[in-house]
Simulated scan of single mutants.
Amino acid sequence: MKKSTRWTIGGAAALVVLAGGGGVALATAGDDEDARPDVAITGDALEQASEAALAHLGEGQVTDTEVGDEEGYYEVEVTLDDGDQVDVHLDEDFTVLGDERDSEEPGDDD
């Protein structure tokens, strides 16, 4: 076998290996928090999480929930009486870890 033929076969084999590795990298690159669907809180946990969030804020209505939130075990979205939305983050025992207002007011750079 000629040297040039061996180099061609070797180069082609290297390209196949590199292309396969790149495909794996691309397939796993999109595996992040935003790609996973939100899972709503259900059952007794929904009731306990909602009560804890509303007690913490003192007003509002629960409009969305999520299990496995990045800031805590549970996240409860509450729409306040003035229309603002607040995400309340809870641990597994429904203890409030904190909250985050979702206001996007112009000039609100806090």
Rank of each mutant, 00 (worst) to 15 (best):
Thr79Phe: 00
Asp82Cys: 02
Gln85Ala: 15
Asp64Thr: 04
Val62Pro: 00
Gly68His: 06
Gly22Leu: 04
Asp82Met: 03
Ala40Ser: 12
Leu57Thr: 01
Asp108Glu: 11
Gly22His: 00
Thr28Gly: 06
His89Met: 14
Glu47Ala: 12
Thr8Asp: 08
Asp31Cys: 09
Val88Ile: 05
Gly23Asp: 03
Ala55Lys: 13
Asp38Ile: 11
Asp91Ala: 11
Ala25Thr: 07
Thr95Pro: 02
Thr63Ala: 07
Gln48Tyr: 05
Val24His: 05
Asp64Leu: 01
Glu104His: 07
Glu47Tyr: 05
Asp69Glu: 00
His56Arg: 13
Thr8Phe: 11
Phe94Asp: 06
His89Asn: 13
Val76Asn: 00
Arg101Val: 09
Trp7Ala: 14
Leu15Val: 11
Arg6Gly: 11
Gly22Val: 03
Gly22Thr: 02
Gly83Trp: 04
Ile41Cys: 00
Ala45Val: 01
Tyr74Thr: 00
Asp34Phe: 09
Asp44Leu: 10
Phe94Pro: 04
Gly60Gln: 07
Asp82Trp: 02
Glu66Ile: 02
Asp93Glu: 15
Leu26Gln: 08
Val16His: 04
Val96Gly: 08
Asp102Pro: 00
Ala40Pro: 06
Gly60Ala: 10
Glu47Gly: 01
Asp44Glu: 14
Asp91Asn: 13
Val16Glu: 02
Glu59Leu: 00
Gly72Ile: 03
Glu104Ser: 09
Glu70Ile: 12
Gly22Ala: 04
Val76Gly: 01
Leu26Asn: 06
Ala45Ile: 02
Arg101Ser: 10
Ala52Val: 01
His89Asp: 10
Gln85Arg: 13
Val24Gln: 01
Arg101Lys: 05
Asp108Phe: 12
Thr42Ser: 14
Gly20Thr: 12
Gly107Pro: 03
Asp32Ser: 12
Pro106His: 01
Gln85Ile: 09
Gly30Trp: 08
Ser50Leu: 10
Gln48Asn: 08
Val16Gly: 01
Glu75Ala: 12
Asp82Lys: 00
Asp108Trp: 06
Gly22Trp: 02
Ala49Asp: 07
Gly22Lys: 03
Glu92Arg: 15
Asp81Arg: 09
Ala49Leu: 07
Arg6Lys: 13
Ala53Tyr: 01
